[in-house]
Design a protein around this nucleic acid. Structure first.
Lengths: 136, 136
DNA sequence: TAGTGCTGGTCTCTTTCTGAGACTACCACT
DNA sequence: AGTGGTAGTCTCAGAAAGAGACCAGCACTA
C-alpha cells in the first residue's frame, strides 16, 4: 500500500465529519468558545464564581492584570451576559461584579476543565520539559 | 450600616478563598487553562479529536487560519503533550497530527464546554444584542 | 485646610502577538 | 518543461495587550 496519500476526495468528508461532531469553521460554538478563551476571562470567571467582587478587589486578587485589561475584560464578560455589574452610590461609588445565571451555567461546564487541569497539570509540565529537552 | 467599605482586612481572606476553591494567580491550573485558551488551540483540538489530520487538511478545514499560525499552534500543542506529530517518508513527505492520550483526556473535559456552547450560544448572542442595544 | 489615600476608571505609549502573503525545496503527473 | 501538491519558513504590517500616568470625588488626618 502506498495508500498514504489521501487527497481531494476527503475534503468534503472531513468537513462533514467535523460539522456533525463538533462544528468548526462557521459556527456559533466556535464564537462562544473563543469568547471564553481570553487570557483573563477564564481567570475572572473563576474569581467571580467564588463570590461577587469589586473592581479594586479583583485588581488585587489578580496582581498581574493591568487596570486597562481588567476594565475591558469585565466589560466584555458583561456584554456576553456572563457578568452583572452593579454600581452602589456609596461615598466613593463602588462597583460590584457578580456572575449572572448564564455565567454560573457556563462556569459549571468550564469547571470540568479546571478539575482536569488540577489533576493533570504535572503531566502537561512533564510533557513540555521532555519536549524542550528533546529539542536541545 | 455603612459597612459597604471592606478594605484591607479582606485581602488575605479573599486570597485564601480563591486559593482553596479554584487557584488563581500563582498556580499550575492557570497555566494549563491558558494553554488551552488560544484562539486556534481549541479549534484544532476539536478537529483532531475527530481523527488524525495532515497539515494541508487542517489548513483547508480551518480556512481562516494562516499557515504561520497553524504551524505554531500545532507546535505548541505538541510541546504541551496534547498532539503527536508523525512524519511519513512518502514521496513528498507528509506529516500527520493526532491526539495523544493526554490530549484525548483533556478534550474529554473540554467537551463539556463545547456541549454547553452548543446549547447556549443563542443565549449568549441574545445577551450581547441586548447589551449593545442598551448602550446605543 | 492641605495632604494622603481610597474609589473606579480613562488615556497614551511601548511591546508583544497575530495575520497575510511571498518564498523554498522536492517530487509526481501532464 | 510547466503545473500543482507536499510542509513549512520568513518578513512585514496591523491588532491586541501591558505599564503606568492621570482624573475626579470623598474621607480621614495632621
Amino acid at each position: 500500500m502506498d495508500g498514504k496519500v489521501i487527497n481531494l476526495k476527503s475534503k468534503m468528508e472531513t468537513y462533514k465529519a467535523i460539522s456533525g461532531g463538533g462544528n468548526i469553521a462557521n459556527c456559533p460554538v466556535r464564537e462562544v468558545i473563543q469568547g471564553v478563551s481570553g487570557k483573563w476571562r477564564s481567570l475572572l470567571m473563576m474569581a467571580l464564581a467564588e463570590r461577587p467582587y469589586r473592581f479594586g478587589e479583583l485588581r488585587r486578587l489578580v496582581p498581574d492584570i493591568s487596570q486597562r485589561m481588567l476594565t475591558q475584560t469585565l466589560y466584555d464578560l458583561q456584554r456576553d451576559g456572563y457578568v452583572h455589574r452593579e454600581v452602589f452610590p456609596t461615598k466613593p461609588p463602588s462597583v460590584e461584579y457578580s456572575l449572572t445565571d448564564l455565567g454560573r451555567s457556563m462556569f459549571g461546564a468550564f469547571h470540568q476543565l479546571i478539575l482536569w487541569a488540577e489533576l493533570n497539570h504535572d503531566a502537561v509540565r512533564a510533557a513540555r520539559a521532555d519536549f524542550d529537552a528533546a529539542q536541545a
